[in-house]
Design a protein around this nucleic acid. Sequence first.
DNA 1: AATGAATGAGTATTCATTCAT
DNA 2: CATGAATGAATACTCATTCAT
Lengths: 216, 216, 216, 216
Amino acid sequence: MSESSLSVRRARARPEERRGRGGDKRERILDAAVRVLAKKGFHSTRVSEVAKAAGVADGTIYLYFKSKDELLVSLFEDRVERLLAFLEADLPRAGSASDKLRRIIELQLGLLEGERDLAEVLTVILRQSTKLMKKYAAPKFNAYLDSIARVVSDGQATGELRGDVSPHLVARAMFGALDGIAMTWALGKADRGGLSRASGQLAQIVLRGLAPLDAR
Amino acid sequence: MSESSLSVRRARARPEERRGRGGDKRERILDAAVRVLAKKGFHSTRVSEVAKAAGVADGTIYLYFKSKDELLVSLFEDRVERLLAFLEADLPRAGSASDKLRRIIELQLGLLEGERDLAEVLTVILRQSTKLMKKYAAPKFNAYLDSIARVVSDGQATGELRGDVSPHLVARAMFGALDGIAMTWALGKADRGGLSRASGQLAQIVLRGLAPLDAR
Amino acid sequence: MSESSLSVRRARARPEERRGRGGDKRERILDAAVRVLAKKGFHSTRVSEVAKAAGVADGTIYLYFKSKDELLVSLFEDRVERLLAFLEADLPRAGSASDKLRRIIELQLGLLEGERDLAEVLTVILRQSTKLMKKYAAPKFNAYLDSIARVVSDGQATGELRGDVSPHLVARAMFGALDGIAMTWALGKADRGGLSRASGQLAQIVLRGLAPLDAR
Amino acid sequence: MSESSLSVRRARARPEERRGRGGDKRERILDAAVRVLAKKGFHSTRVSEVAKAAGVADGTIYLYFKSKDELLVSLFEDRVERLLAFLEADLPRAGSASDKLRRIIELQLGLLEGERDLAEVLTVILRQSTKLMKKYAAPKFNAYLDSIARVVSDGQATGELRGDVSPHLVARAMFGALDGIAMTWALGKADRGGLSRASGQLAQIVLRGLAPLDAR
DNA sequence: AATGAATGAGTATTCATTCAT
DNA sequence: CATGAATGAATACTCATTCAT
């Protein structure tokens, strides 16, 4: 899988928004929003700042998004949703449960590499909007956690993974671990390649930890 | 571990602030703040709501705290700091590195059991105050992560833990996993005993995952 | 001297601020501010009252002025500064020192005739803003006093005025006398023509008082 | 006239307030008020600051004065009223109208020499309280102005002063001149002896200016 | 579609005053 | 008399949103 295929920034706008200048204006606003949000946080980000960063008038924002909250929701839907969909779509290609878990780890961390602003928005800023967390993020997170949990329970069924742990617990812990790593990376030095290295080590620990007991 | 010994809510107020009627007023305000913050989030919480919940006048808040921000900072210092101090103080009692890691997991999750509001404040609300995150929380988190990392590297030195993983990575991942579990618990159903069960399973996975390679 | 040429209220707004509806809005706010300030005083004047009197929304005030203090400063700069500049510009036209002093008296009182609210703002309200008094007004007053003092010392040099009094003392006393007359007029009955009459009499007293000793 | 006889600060408290500690507490509060008002101005002066400067509790202020406004009114009545009464009482001693006017000038400026804080309160701070200006000060000022005007009109009746100027105008101008001199002195360098010198020069100018026309 | 001037609802904080001790 | 902790009314300013152009 080529890194570029994961690029969120380059993702195509919906066809109906491509006509005229309108199509890329929506994109320009979302791009600007990621930049400003990463720097200022949700509550300190002013609509007028996003407008200025996007090179449009304040009012123009409201031609594309119903409200400031809606802008963040759209950001979430346009960016994160596609990421999550991508992860799920990619999983079947992997064979064993171990391969799938390793893939999940690689993808979740790999996606953020090179998109530091986006990483910060997803791991930190997103949580600053209580509404978004409770109304939008939670269901998506749950769906994502469910798909991880399914990989685990499938692996348990085939005897590939230990059967004495709750698949959902594993999913939450894995997601939390990945999120924690991404967060410290986003807030910290964010060195090139840091996430890739982390990805490998975490996979080894997780897979060892989930190996069947008799594999000892 | 006795639950009561960990109770934050019952922690004694500083003696010098007990004089007159003022002493428990500070406590009442902090208690009210935890309740309101957990329900509304930082930015949606009105100072007047906290005052009402505490049964004091708006202005009284400002006799005990310099500002709304300062109130959250004080909450953090009065509650969280003591929690973290408690964790670090408890560690030396455990013998092996494995015991210590297990203890960390039990404590971090155990502390929140029965203090759902506090758990939500710590895992969710805290991150809504950019100022708090950057000026106060970050250093504390780092100190805490460092103490976990030290346990790991000590264990690696004695050969008790596998040596091919970065202690800091392990610390971040562990903290993230614990935080993720606590967050879904705080935002979700939060069933009695859920965290205790989770605690045991997570410990098993982590310790298996960190066992020396030749232990296979 | 034609009255209209001195009218402050009719002074043209800066061309670049005339575009759209904004141009006269700034003027409307300043006009409203003079009216409300004269009636209420600086500290009892609410920004919302000025807004209402100007027929604009509260927030609109802040599109034109940075703060309530800044509004008073702008009032000062837009009105008083121009007045003082006018006085100084007019002086050279007069020939002798006596003519100049008479002119100063006529102008300072004549300017306020018909602008009672403005007179009150200048003689009373202005002094209610400590900041304005110390940071803005004081230097302007000093400059004005200096220009009066210069007229006196020039007159002394040519032997036209008595040489045994301090030019600066004369300036302060003259300004004080004019200010006192204007203040009692503004706070009192403020009868039509009162200031003009006062102007003539004061000039006679001052000029007699400053005549060279040997003129006796 | 000895300077000390004019000292406002040393003026005896009313007999009924002399008992116990109460009597000097009222004085201490008024003294503190003068000091704080001179430094901060009326609206920036906090009741608690006056209390602290007086060495009493906030609530104690209200045992002696009904309100903050009332405190300033009392200050005015205790200090200024007595000053004005003193001036009026002193006038009859002087013989001619010229002597009386000279006396007024000497007294009004002399009183403030050495009492800079009080001078600032009287010339600047007093005007910051619109209520005080309109409800209390105005009548007193008028009474004072009237007594000056009477001196002038008496002098005109005896032919000692020129008869072609309005006595009230002269009073206003004289008061304004004195006030202007005091104000620049209070706000400026306030050099020792400055007011005495000013006093002499101003008297010469005023008396020359008011001399009968045929005296030329 | 795009603009950006105008709007006005919403809130943290101050401080004169009270009153239980 | 004295205290000072507690009160709560009062207000400048911000910023998401609208709409005439």
